[in-house]
Amino acid sequence: MSLKILEQVNSFLAALVLLTAFAMLAQRRINALIHVFMWQGLFLSISTAIVGFIANKHHLYLSSVLTLSLKVIVLPYILHVLIVRLKIRKEVETIVNIPMTMLLGIGLVIFSYHLTRPIMELSTFITRSTLSVALATVMIGLLMMITRKKAITQVIGFLAMENGLFLAATSATYGMPFVVELGVALDVLIAAFIFGIFLFHINTTFDSLDVNQMARLKEDI
């Protein structure tokens, strides 16, 4: 395959990542949300492998495998177990309604395209077009954390943000050194475990996973 086509494929995959990010914003069921998250991880891992092929960086293949195993298999499994254990069957509860969040998300995408335009003009990497998508994914992840009530959806938002960061790293600099990526992957895994434990504790303390309940922890002045 020629590089031209590969670049197109990579941009397409990046677009799919952004699409899944919007899908997560729109999703009302937690199980489906985890599935969307799995898809995002899958697209990310394929994209990483393609970038590795284009740039001829072999460690990106390893990153790709790592992403596949962690974000497509392990983390969704952990989240699934959590949902079963905590008996979360309800829909995703939002603070701002979903159409509004979608609109905000679109605004963020435009904002990030605006931000990265000077970088794209200067950069010589063929993956440069994905940078704005990556930034948008990060911001949408953060938006998801802000607009969701339940702690578990915030965890997923956080992980989506991490996906965006990973995409930014591969697209802007052809990936970080492998040692750093290993460290990040380990961090994410440990974060997931800690979140799991944390959620159990929140649940037992407040009988709910609603983070608004945690306002009770604040000291009164």
Partner: peptide, 17 residues
């Protein structure tokens, strides 16, 4: 300091933007 996680997240979000 309202004790609301969302509010704290919004602070950092707005700061970043």
């Amino acid at each position: 300091q309202q004790g609301q996680i969302h509010l704290y997240l919004i602070y950092s979000f707005v700061t970043i933007i």
